[in-house]
Design a binder for these strands. Structure first.
Lengths: 232, 232
DNA sequence: CCTGACGTTTGATCGAAATCAAACCTCAAT
DNA sequence: ATTGAGGTTTGATTTCGATCAAACGTCAGG
């Protein structure tokens, strides 16, 4: 990998407290590769051979059962995925595909396990990361069990709005089909949910969504920090 | 706490690799208490002051938003809950109440954090435990996004059947209202889901459910180890 | 500029699950 | 035995979201 990428990877929470030498040997054993969009990286049920780090692009985690499919999460740069399977030396519970052209770092899972066995600081970082991942899924699960489709969309828009600097409009980070699946609804219903939000100042223009009456939208969405706030 | 309880607590995956002295000082600082049924132990949003260990009885984890409420998980003996909040020194994302009379060990979260900072073996055990919790929630999330209510019930019955020794019948571990909430449906619909399963050999007798045609039930349920198998 | 593919939207309909309401058990307390 | 409370079931109805089908937009490639 390019040495210019090193600081970027090192800046991930997971690695930043790691001893420099150890970090370098970990990364030296890793593979860096650029994939086109819509390439399957891993498939659920396969043994966890690598920990993945998204350096550029975006990766979709999804799951299948019974002929149905659903998007579980989107991983933007710089994020890791499938950490739990790697640590447990178990099979993946989710599949992953690139949603755009993506630069991906693949670290052999054996190296990860060796590193956390021998480096207490790395173990602590893993604990922090895992606890965050756990709480993120809990929040997703609460969202789907406690909210209607329209409420889930409204809160998601508010989240993106905050993420993107509260400028009164939002650029949807992925296509609507994927967003629908992530929110647990059919694409047709996402479209209808947007219509339902029209009276609350939500105006869709392609991938741009204008939020012209945030307080009305919040009244409907009833955002809840214990579901929507990803910093806690 | 009674010294007779020590081995029981020590047998939890989380503690079994821990140095004995350290374990004893951890437990000495803890509180052991017996609560009647339906007592609220913690409430979502509160700071995580304790890690909880269920020694006897059973605890329901639940969440609320917007006037709605849902059961997130049931914690039987000997299990812990709210580990992630404790590690992060964050607020609880879920509330907890006893579902029967329960004996609960409460370990101050500061002691837990000190222990994992200074004991690499304990840190490793925490990683294992957290990874398991994470994967358990992922499975729940897959279940609710990929399956209908009837399928969720069918698979849950098969799981309990296996847990209880595959004797042709199942004793529901909690009341049907709670089971319904755990499975993400209204109590009325749980009752109807049982009726739907009647042609597949499912016969309800109070809290006992007879599974008279397991292969038919499995044909309908289409169990998937990546959702239903809790050992992986 | 045209074409066709693909994502999105709209309309119509269907089906699953929620809700409302009432009846019905079960069982503990009197 | 009787009462009453809480859990469960059944029935009727409504609502939400899924599905099916077709139209529409957008945009890259010819």
């Amino acid at each position: 990998m390019r040495s210019s990428d090193l600081p970027e990877v090192k800046s991930i929470h997971l690695f930043e407290t790691m001893n420099d030498d150890r970090f370098e040997s970990l990364v030296n054993a890793a593979y860096l590769q650029t994939f086109p969009a819509q390439v399957d990286l891993i498939h659920e049920g396969d043994p966890a051979d690598f920990l993945y780090v998204v350096l550029d692009g975006c990766v979709e985690l999804y799951a299948q059962s019974n002929g149905r499919e659903t998007t579980m999460a989107m991983v933007p740069p710089v994020g890791t995925f499938i950490l739990a399977a790697v640590l447990k030396d178990a099979v993946y519970l989710m599949s992953a595909r690139t949603s755009q052209q993506s630069r991906i770092l693949m670290i052999p899972s054996q190296d990860i396990r060796l590193a956390f066995e021998s480096d207490p600081d790395f173990a602590k970082a893993i604990i922090r990361e895992l606890a965050n991942c756990y709480r993120a899924v809990i929040k997703e699960h609460k969202s789907i069990k406690l909210r209607s489709t329209v409420e889930r969309l409204a809160n998601r828009l508010i989240r993106y709005h905050t993420d993107q600097g509260s400028i009164g409009s939002v650029l949807l980070p992925y296509d609507k089909r994927t967003l629908a699946s992530l929110l647990g609804m059919a694409p047709e219903n996402l479209s209808r949910a947007f219509n339902t939000l029209k009276p609350y100042g939500v105006k869709v223009e392609g991938a741009t969504v204008h939020l012209n009456d945030l307080s009305a939208l919040e009244t409907l969405a009833k955002p809840n920090s214990l579901i929507d706030d990803r910093t806690m």
